[in-house]
Design a protein around this nucleic acid. Structure first.
Lengths: 189, 189
DNA sequence: AACAAAAACTAACACTTGTTAGTTCACTAA
DNA sequence: TTAGTGAACTAACAAGTGTTAGTTTTTGTT
C-alpha cells in the first residue's frame, strides 16, 4: 500500500476542516497550522485553495456518476436498483466522510467547475428519477408523488456523512440493509 | 398587517444571501448592495453580522422547540405524533425557507449562542427519539434500528428547505400527507 | 417653517485574506 | 565532494474584512 503523498495529506486535512467550518471559513493559515507548517509552504504542493475544493468535490461526484451508470445499465429490477444505490451511497460516504460534507455544502464555491458539477448532479438525479418512474410503471413502487419520494430518499442518502462517523463500530452492510428496509418498506407495523 | 421594519428586511435579505453562499462567504458589503445601501448604513439597524445570524437561527430553533413540546405532551399515539412532527417541519420550513438554510448549514458560526443552540437541538432529538421508542414499545412501529430510522426521517425533514421552493404551487397539506405516507409506510407495493 | 429623529452617507481603522518572491536547509545521486 | 531537488521558511503584497466616527440628508411632527 502506497503511502499518502504530501499533497493528498493536505487535501485530506483540508476536507476535514471544510466539514467543520465550511470552505469559506477555513483560511490557508488554518490549514497550514493543521498541517504543522506555514501557509506559504502549502503552495509547494497545491495550486490554490480553490483547487483543493475542486479536487475534493469533482472526484466524489465522478464516483457517484460511475456507480450510477453501472446500476442503471444492469438488468436488476427497480427495487434492487434502489438497494444498489443505497449501497453506493453508504460505501462512498463511509470512505470519504469529510469530502461528502464539501460535496453537499460547498459545491457553490466551485468556480470554473461549477457548471460541470451541476451537470453531473442533474444527470444523477435524472437517472434516479427514471428508476423510480419505471418502478412505478411496472407496479413495483407505489404510485404517489415520485418527486417527494426521490427527494426523501436522496436527501437521506446525501446526509449520511453527518451520521456515519458517530457509530465507529458500525457494520456497513447492516447499515445498508437497515436503510433499505426503512426507506423502501417504511417504519410502521 | 404591520409592514416590515428595516431591520426585519435586512435580516430577511441576509438569510437569502446566506442560503446562496453560506454565512462566511457573504460580506456586509454584499448585504448592503442587496439592500441598496452602503455597508456602514446597515449598522443603523443591526448590531453586527454575528447578531443577524443569531437572530435567524435562534428564533427558528425556538419555534421547533415549542412545536415539539406541544406534540410531545399531547395524547396522540406515536404515529400521529410523527405525522404532527412532519406537519411542523413543513409549516416552519415553508414559512422561512432561507432561514432554514442557515439553521442547517451555519449553526457552527454561532458564537456566544452556540451552546444554547446545541442544547435545543439535542433536546429536540431526544424528544423525537423517545416518541419513536415508545412507538416501538407499543408495537406501532417496527423494531429495527431506531437510530437509523430517526436519522432518516429527521434529515429528510431538515432538508425540506432545499426542495419546497421548487414547486411554487405546492399544496402544503398535500406535501405533509405525501411525506407521511412515504416516510412511514414506505414506497413499495 | 422649524426641529428632532431616523437613516443614509464618506472616510477610515485595524486586521485578515490568498498568494508570490526569494531564501535556507536537508537529503540524494553523481 | 558537489550539484541539484524538494520542501520548508520569512517577508511582503494588494485586496478585502467587519466595524466605528463623524457628517449630511431625508422624513415626519409640531
Amino acid at each position: 500500500m502506497k503511502s499518502e503523498t504530501r499533497q493528498q495529506e493536505i487535501i485530506r486535512v483540508a476536507a476535514k476542516l471544510f466539514k467543520e467550518k465550511g470552505y469559506s471559513a477555513v483560511t490557508m493559515r488554518d490549514l497550514a497550522k493543521a498541517m504543522g507548517m506555514k501557509a506559504a509552504s502549502l503552495y509547494n504542493h497545491i495550486k490554490s485553495k480553490q483547487d483543493i475544493l475542486k479536487t475534493i468535490i469533482i472526484s466524489l461526484a465522478q464516483e457517484f456518476t460511475e456507480g450510477m451508470q453501472l446500476i442503471q445499465s444492469s438488468d436488476a429490477n427497480c427495487i434492487d436498483k434502489l438497494n444498489k444505490i443505497i449501497e453506493l451511497h453508504v460505501k462512498i460516504s463511509s470512505q470519504n466522510i469529510y469530502g461528502m460534507a464539501s460535496l453537499n455544502n460547498d459545491w457553490m464555491h466551485l468556480e470554473e467547475k461549477l457548471d460541470y458539477y451541476q451537470q453531473l448532479r442533474d444527470d444523477y438525479e435524472n437517472d434516479f428519477r427514471n428508476i423510480l418512474k419505471s418502478g412505478i410503471a411496472s407496479g413495483e413502487i407505489i404510485d404517489i408523488k415520485s418527486d417527494v419520494m426521490m427527494f426523501s430518499i436522496l436527501t437521506t442518502l446525501r446526509s449520511l456523512y453527518m451520521w456515519i462517523p458517530k457509530k465507529e463500530d458500525i457494520n456497513l452492510e447492516e447499515l445498508s440493509n437497515s436503510l433499505s428496509q426503512i426507506l423502501i418498506k417504511g417504519i410502521n407495523n
